[in-house]
Amino acid sequence: MTDKHVTPLASAHLAKEGDDAALGDTERHGFLPIETNWFDRLFISVVIWVALSLFWFRFIEPIGLSIWISNAIALALGAFIIRKG
């Protein structure tokens, strides 16, 4: 296909290599078993935060440990996943 056949809409998809990187959308392989971009890692962190909170409400909080401990753990874990995941 020559350039003159590329429609404006199609040309929007034909981004040069490095455009994704400029948008901060690069995928990388950290300690997580899959390649992830920053949004994937944020998503994983939120999923873990919610799961940990529900687990904490059900099993840990009745013992007497505050939910804020769970939030602190989830926050630290989230930061670790986003930076190193």
């Binding site: 909170s53 529900l54 409400f57 059900r58 909080e61 939910i67």
Partner: peptide
């Protein structure tokens, strides 16, 4: 606060 979520797990 999170009371609804506290309630839901029980």
């Amino acid at each position: 606060g999170a009371d609804n979520f506290r309630r839901i797990v029980f």
